[in-house]
Amino acid sequence: MYAPFVISSIADENKVGKKVDANNVLLIEELLNQHLKLSTYGEGLTGIAFVYIVTPPIDIIHHDEIIYRAKKKELYIEMRLPYEKVATASKAEVLQMMAQKYLQTFQDKSLWKKLKNFNCEGFSKDVQRLFEEQEWLNVVEFV
Protein backbone atom coordinates (compact mmCIF):
# COMPACT_ATOMS: atom_id res chain seq x y z
CA MET A 1 0.00 0.00 0.00
CA TYR A 2 1.22 3.47 -0.80
CA ALA A 3 0.19 4.76 2.64
CA PRO A 4 -0.95 3.22 5.94
CA PHE A 5 -4.49 4.44 5.20
CA VAL A 6 -5.70 4.11 1.64
CA ILE A 7 -9.13 5.28 0.54
CA SER A 8 -10.56 4.69 -2.91
CA SER A 9 -13.81 3.96 -4.70
CA ILE A 10 -15.60 1.84 -7.28
CA ALA A 11 -18.41 3.89 -8.73
CA ASP A 12 -20.48 4.36 -11.84
CA GLU A 13 -19.11 7.15 -13.98
CA ASN A 14 -22.27 9.22 -13.74
CA LYS A 15 -23.80 12.00 -11.65
CA VAL A 16 -24.38 9.70 -8.69
CA GLY A 17 -21.01 7.98 -8.68
CA LYS A 18 -19.17 11.26 -9.04
CA LYS A 19 -20.38 12.34 -5.61
CA VAL A 20 -17.71 9.99 -4.27
CA ASP A 21 -15.19 12.11 -6.06
CA ALA A 22 -11.47 12.39 -5.46
CA ASN A 23 -12.05 15.32 -3.13
CA ASN A 24 -14.18 13.37 -0.65
CA VAL A 25 -11.89 10.37 -0.89
CA LEU A 26 -8.76 12.43 -0.30
CA LEU A 27 -10.24 14.31 2.66
CA ILE A 28 -10.75 11.08 4.58
CA GLU A 29 -7.44 9.60 3.47
CA GLU A 30 -5.41 12.65 4.45
CA LEU A 31 -7.15 13.03 7.80
CA LEU A 32 -6.45 9.44 8.80
CA ASN A 33 -2.82 9.50 7.64
CA GLN A 34 -2.12 12.79 9.38
CA HIS A 35 -3.64 11.95 12.75
CA LEU A 36 -3.46 8.20 13.27
CA LYS A 37 -0.62 5.69 13.49
CA LEU A 38 -1.48 2.04 13.10
CA SER A 39 1.37 0.97 15.36
CA THR A 40 -0.44 2.70 18.25
CA TYR A 41 -2.98 -0.10 18.21
CA GLY A 42 -0.59 -3.04 18.06
CA GLU A 43 1.48 -4.93 15.56
CA GLY A 44 -1.43 -6.55 13.78
CA LEU A 45 -1.82 -4.06 10.93
CA THR A 46 0.51 -2.00 8.78
CA GLY A 47 -2.05 -0.92 6.18
CA ILE A 48 -5.79 -0.49 5.72
CA ALA A 49 -7.31 -0.01 2.27
CA PHE A 50 -10.97 1.01 2.30
CA VAL A 51 -12.83 1.13 -1.00
CA TYR A 52 -16.35 2.54 -1.24
CA ILE A 53 -18.70 0.89 -3.71
CA VAL A 54 -21.25 3.25 -5.23
CA THR A 55 -23.01 1.28 -7.92
CA PRO A 56 -26.69 0.58 -8.57
CA PRO A 57 -28.42 -2.65 -7.42
CA ILE A 58 -27.98 -4.11 -10.92
CA ASP A 59 -24.28 -4.51 -10.12
CA ILE A 60 -23.62 -8.10 -9.05
CA ILE A 61 -19.88 -7.93 -9.51
CA HIS A 62 -18.94 -5.79 -6.53
CA HIS A 63 -20.00 -6.56 -2.99
CA ASP A 64 -18.95 -6.01 0.62
CA GLU A 65 -15.74 -7.79 1.36
CA ILE A 66 -13.12 -7.79 4.08
CA ILE A 67 -9.80 -9.44 3.31
CA TYR A 68 -7.15 -9.79 5.96
CA ARG A 69 -3.67 -10.67 4.73
CA ALA A 70 -1.99 -11.98 7.85
CA LYS A 71 1.52 -12.24 6.38
CA LYS A 72 1.57 -8.68 5.08
CA LYS A 73 -0.54 -7.43 8.02
CA GLU A 74 -2.84 -5.61 5.62
CA LEU A 75 -6.56 -5.19 5.56
CA TYR A 76 -8.44 -4.68 2.31
CA ILE A 77 -12.09 -3.65 2.64
CA GLU A 78 -14.79 -2.96 0.04
CA MET A 79 -18.04 -1.56 1.42
CA ARG A 80 -21.15 -0.47 -0.39
CA LEU A 81 -22.93 2.84 0.18
CA PRO A 82 -26.71 2.78 -0.43
CA TYR A 83 -27.03 3.97 -4.02
CA GLU A 84 -30.51 5.47 -3.66
CA LYS A 85 -29.36 7.56 -0.68
CA VAL A 86 -26.23 8.75 -2.48
CA ALA A 87 -28.39 9.69 -5.46
CA THR A 88 -30.44 12.14 -3.39
CA ALA A 89 -27.62 13.40 -1.14
CA SER A 90 -25.30 16.35 -1.68
CA LYS A 91 -21.52 15.87 -1.89
CA ALA A 92 -21.18 17.07 1.68
CA GLU A 93 -23.77 14.56 2.85
CA VAL A 94 -22.02 11.81 0.90
CA LEU A 95 -18.85 12.63 2.82
CA GLN A 96 -20.84 12.08 6.02
CA MET A 97 -22.05 8.75 4.67
CA MET A 98 -18.50 7.72 3.84
CA ALA A 99 -17.30 8.63 7.34
CA GLN A 100 -20.17 6.74 8.96
CA LYS A 101 -19.58 3.65 6.85
CA TYR A 102 -15.86 3.66 7.68
CA LEU A 103 -16.55 3.95 11.39
CA GLN A 104 -19.36 1.36 11.36
CA THR A 105 -17.07 -1.15 9.70
CA PHE A 106 -14.50 -0.88 12.48
CA GLN A 107 -17.13 -0.89 15.22
CA ASP A 108 -18.32 -4.28 14.02
CA LYS A 109 -17.17 -6.84 16.59
CA SER A 110 -17.01 -9.63 14.04
CA LEU A 111 -14.09 -7.73 12.48
CA TRP A 112 -12.41 -7.44 15.89
CA LYS A 113 -12.26 -11.23 16.09
CA LYS A 114 -10.50 -11.48 12.71
CA LEU A 115 -7.74 -9.04 13.58
CA LYS A 116 -5.10 -10.36 15.91
CA ASN A 117 -2.72 -8.06 17.75
CA PHE A 118 -4.75 -5.01 16.76
CA ASN A 119 -6.81 -2.96 19.19
CA CYS A 120 -9.87 -2.47 17.01
CA GLU A 121 -11.89 -0.97 19.81
CA GLY A 122 -9.29 1.71 20.53
CA PHE A 123 -8.85 2.39 16.83
CA SER A 124 -12.59 2.82 16.21
CA LYS A 125 -12.85 5.21 19.19
CA ASP A 126 -10.05 7.36 17.80
CA VAL A 127 -11.59 7.32 14.33
CA GLN A 128 -14.91 8.38 15.85
CA ARG A 129 -13.26 11.22 17.74
CA LEU A 130 -11.48 12.42 14.59
CA PHE A 131 -14.61 12.31 12.46
CA GLU A 132 -16.63 14.07 15.16
CA GLU A 133 -14.06 16.87 15.28
CA GLN A 134 -14.56 17.28 11.54
CA GLU A 135 -18.33 17.20 12.07
CA TRP A 136 -18.60 14.26 9.70
CA LEU A 137 -20.91 12.27 11.94
CA ASN A 138 -23.62 14.88 12.33
CA VAL A 139 -26.42 13.19 10.43
CA VAL A 140 -27.35 9.87 11.96
CA GLU A 141 -28.33 6.63 10.26
CA PHE A 142 -27.36 7.63 6.78
CA VAL A 143 -26.00 4.20 6.00
Binding site: Y2, S9, A11, V25
Partner: peptide, 8 residues
Protein backbone atom coordinates in the same frame (compact mmCIF):
# COMPACT_ATOMS: atom_id res chain seq x y z
CA UNK B 1 -6.33 0.73 -6.11
CA UNK B 2 -4.28 0.00 -3.02
CA UNK B 3 -0.80 0.39 -4.49
CA UNK B 4 -1.44 3.52 -6.52
CA UNK B 5 -3.57 6.62 -6.13
CA UNK B 6 -6.33 5.42 -8.44
CA UNK B 7 -10.11 5.23 -8.64
CA UNK B 8 -12.27 2.70 -10.50
Amino acid sequence: LEKMNLQY
